[in-house]
C-alpha cells in the first residue's frame, strides 16, 4: 500500500512540474502541439525510468562500497548523458519511425532538471529498489499528464486574443498557476 501512495503522490500531489517546478524549460518550449507533447512525455518516461535504475545500481554497488559518495553528482549526470546518447544512436539505427516521434526530443532531455532530480532523490530518500522503480515511473507519468493538458490548452490559447505583453510565455505561466491551484486541491488524497 505504501508503494501505491508513493505512486499517487508523485503524480498528483508532488507533481514534478506544478509543485516542484522541475522540467520547466521544455515545458515552455515543447508544449505547443499535443502530438509533440506526447512524444516528449514518452521520451522523458523512457529516459527517467531506465537512467534511475542504472544510477541506483551504480550508487549502491560501486560508489557506496568504495566510499565515493561525493562523486554522486558527477557520476549521475555523466551516466544520464551517456545513456541518452546511446539510446539515440540505437533508435537512429533501428527504428526511423520511433526516431521521428521520440528520438528528436532526446537531446533536450539530457539537461532536464527532472531526470537528475529523480536520480538524486532516490538516493536522498533512501529508497530500496522497488520504491526506486515506482518513483521513477510515477514522476514522468505526472510530467506527461501535465504536459498533455497544458498543450491542449495552449493550442487554443495561441489563437485567442491575448494582450500583447502577455503573449507567449507569460500567459502560459498564468495557465500553469491555475493548474497548480487545481492540483493542490488533491493534497488530501493520501
Amino acid at each position: 500500500m505504501e508503494l501505491f501512495s508513493l505512486f499517487i503522490s508523485a503524480i498528483f500531489i508532488n507533481n514534478i512540474i506544478l509543485n516542484r517546478f522541475l522540467g520547466m524549460c521544455p515545458f515552455m518550449g515543447v508544449s505547443r502541439k499535443t502530438s509533440s507533447a506526447l512524444g516528449m512525455g514518452g521520451a522523458v518516461t523512457f529516459v527517467i525510468f531506465f537512467s534511475s535504475i542504472i544510477t541506483f545500481g551504480l550508487y549502491t554497488y560501486i560508489l557506496e562500497p568504495f566510499n565515493l559518495q561525493y562523486m554522486d553528482l558527477i557520476t549521475f549526470i555523466l551516466i544520464i548523458a551517456s545513456f541518452v546518447q546511446l539510446v539515440e544512436m540505437i533508435i537512429k539505427k533501428f527504428s526511423p519511425s520511433l526516431y521521428k516521434s521520440l528520438g528528436i526530443f532526446l537531446p533536450l532531455i539530457t539537461t532536464n532538471c527532472a531526470v537528475l532530480f529523480v536520480a538524486l532523490e532516490n538516493i536522498k530518500q533512501g529508497f530500496n529498489f522497488t520504491e526506486t522503480v515506482v518513483y521513477a515511473l510515477a514522476v514522468p507519468i505526472g510530467f506527461t499528464l501535465v504536459l498533455i493538458i497544458f498543450s491542449s490548452i495552449r493550442e487554443r490559447l495561441d489563437i485567442a486574443d491575448v494582450p500583447q505583453a502577455l503573449k507567449g510565455n507569460p500567459v502560459a505561466m498564468i495557465v500553469a498557476a491555475i493548474m497548480a491551484l487545481a492540483f493542490s486541491g488533491l493534497a488530501g488524497l493520501v
Binding site: A165, L166, P170, M173
Partner: peptide
C-alpha cells in the same frame, strides 16, 4: 505556494516585455 510563484513570474515577465 507554487501557484503564487507562477503568477508573480508571469506579471514580472509581462512588465519586462512592456
Amino acid at each position: 505556494q507554487p501557484a503564487g510563484a507562477f503568477i508573480t513570474f508571469a506579471v514580472l515577465a509581462a512588465l519586462l516585455e512592456v
